[in-house]
Every structure is written in C-alpha cells, then in structure tokens.
C-alpha cells in the first residue's frame, strides 16, 4: 500500500503525544539525577546518588513494590474472571438485560477520591454498616486495622471499582464476535461448556490480553484507594509503590528521589509488562 497514507494515519496522534510528553519525560529523567527537594529546589547534578540510595538503602521501596505486585495481580485476575463471567451472563438473553448492563458499569464512573471516602465509612469498624450487620453473626472483622484483612479490603474496593472496565471491554468483544463459529458449533451439537472453551474463549483471547495489560497498568497506579482507606497502614502493610512515591514526592517533597523511583518503576513495569504480554499471548493464543 501507499507509504504516504500510513504516515498520515499514524503521525497526528503520535506527534501530539510526543510533543506534549517530550519535555516532561526528559525533565523527569534529569530530575532523577538531581537533589531537588523542599529546601533546595533546583536541577543540581548529583549523579546517580538517588539511584544508589534506592538500590542499596531503601528496602521500603522494594517491599512496597512486591506488595503492589501482589495487590495488582490479584485484583486484575479477580476483575478479569468476574468481568468475563458477568459479560457472558448478560451477553445473551436475560431478563432486564439493559438494566444489568448499565448497572454493572456504574461503579467505574465514580471518582475514586470521593468514592473511597464512602467505602471508608462503609467499612468503618464502629460507625459503618458492614460490621453492624455482621454483628448479628457475632463477627467483627477488622477491615481497616488488621494488616492482612486491610489488604483484602483494598482489593474489594478495587474490584468493585474496576471490574466494570473488564466487563465493558469483554462485553463489547462478545457483542462483536462473528456468528459463523457459533452456528458451526451449534450444528455439531456442542455443549455450552465446550462451546465456551473451544469457540468463545479463543475468539476473545486478543481482547482479553489487551484488557489485562491495560488493567495491570492502571491497577499498579493504585493510590487514592490506599490513601483514603488506610494511608498505607496499619504500619506499612498496605503501602504500594505509587503511594510510597507519592509520600516521598508530594508529601516530603523529595522530588529528585521520587523521580528516580518513578523512573526505576517505569523501567521495571515496561519489562515485566512485556514479559507478561508475551506469556499471555503464548498461553491464550497458543502461538
């Protein structure tokens, strides 16, 4: 095909993106080599000092990174499974189809900063409805003050908020599937389970990979939820990388150091997402 055309399609978007981002990205890299902080704002040059500090003297960053990996992988898997199940359920004929389709989308549209405040009252251990209702059964989980349960509370809120994302992407995928393979399967008399495994799922694999990758990226930025629910507590048990970077950057104003953490984080994420994408492609598309 004609060469000129393809560039006409690609370049407007690409150049706008690069045009807006080039300065900020270069600035962040430069920032990470400086000691910019609250009392000494400026792009002085301190070499790799921030990186040395990060790699040799900051176990908290790495702890928070592993915690983040656990949280984001768990939430994304849950979101994918539940989202797929829901999409599959309201795909074909079901009573009140339109109502459910819209309802399941709503959580995603709430502003996290505000909605998490409501979740906080919801799980409030003495003034919230959850423990009040559970007291009928004589249990009172420490939703926000137990180091282990608090992690799951964060997961619950994240799953609530972002399962709709998976749901919508997968539902749209299901709705745009070609009809022929299903007709063929029907003629063969395949059971619903076999139909799902051999027809639906393979057809949905490409969009699934896309959805999982984008959710992994977004889930890793988890920030407002942690900040409002627990501020990373109890202790450091719900602190994630992005929250830790937030504390170092906008709270303590160690901008140089935060930039070096962000940049390191960016590199690690790009590498691991590439690997995850490769693995997913292999497993799901059987390439």
């Amino acid at each position: 095909m004609n060469f000129k055309h393809k560039y006409f399609f690609l370049f407007p978007g690409l150049f706008v993106l690069i045009g807006i981002l080039i300065f900020p990205i270069i600035f962040v890299v430069r920032l990470s080599l400086s000691g910019w902080n609250s009392y000494n704002p400026g792009l002085d040059y301190i070499g790799l000092e921030n990186y040395i500090r990060l790699f040799t003297d900051d176990p908290r960053f790495w702890e928070s990174f592993f915690r983040l990996s656990f949280l984001s992988v768990t939430t994304v898997i849950l979101q994918y499974v539940i989202g797929f199940a829901l999409a599959h359920m309201v795909w074909k004929d079901i009573k009140f189809k339109r109502f459910f389709r819209v309802l399941f989308l709503v959580p995603m549209m709430t502003t996290p900063v505000i909605m998490t405040v409501i979740w906080r009252t919801f799980f409030h251990e003495s003034l919230g409805p959850v423990n009040d209702l559970l007291s009928v059964f004589g249990v009172a989980p420490k939703w926000l003050t137990d180091p282990v349960i608090a992690k799951f509370t964060v997961i619950i809120v994240e799953v609530w908020q972002w399962t709709p994302f998976m749901f919508l992407l997968l539902l749209a995928g299901l709705l745009s599937l070609p009809k022929e393979p299903f007709l063929a399967a029907a003629i063969d008399g395949a059971s619903p389970v076999r139909k799902f495994i051999y027809v639906t799922f393979p057809l949905m694999a490409p969009i699934s990979i896309g959805a999982i990758i984008i959710r992994l990226i977004e889930a890793s930025k988890i920030m407002d939820t942690v900040y409002v629910l627990t501020s990373g507590g109890p202790g450091t048990s719900t602190e994630t990388s992005s929250f830790y970077i937030f504390i170092k950057g906008l709270r303590e104003f160690q901008m140089g150091y935060a930039a070096s953490m962000s940049f390191t984080y960016l590199i690690i994420m790009i590498i691991s997402l590439t690997i995850i994408a490769k693995v997913l492609t292999k497993v799901l598309l059987k390439e």
Binding site: I25, L31, I214, I217, M255, L266, T274
Partner: peptide
C-alpha cells in the same frame, strides 16, 4: 512496539509529572 509505546505513557506515576507539567 509503537502500540506499546502509546500505552506505556500511562505507566508513569503521575506524582513526579506534576512539576514538569506545571513548568510545561
């Protein structure tokens, strides 16, 4: 890789972008 380049723009935690975007 180009597709991934697009989406990778969302990876960076927004916090450190505050100052560069502000200056920009």
């Amino acid at each position: 890789d180009i597709t991934f380049f697009f989406i990778s723009q969302r990876i960076m935690p927004p916090i450190v972008l505050s100052i560069p975007f502000f200056l920009f």
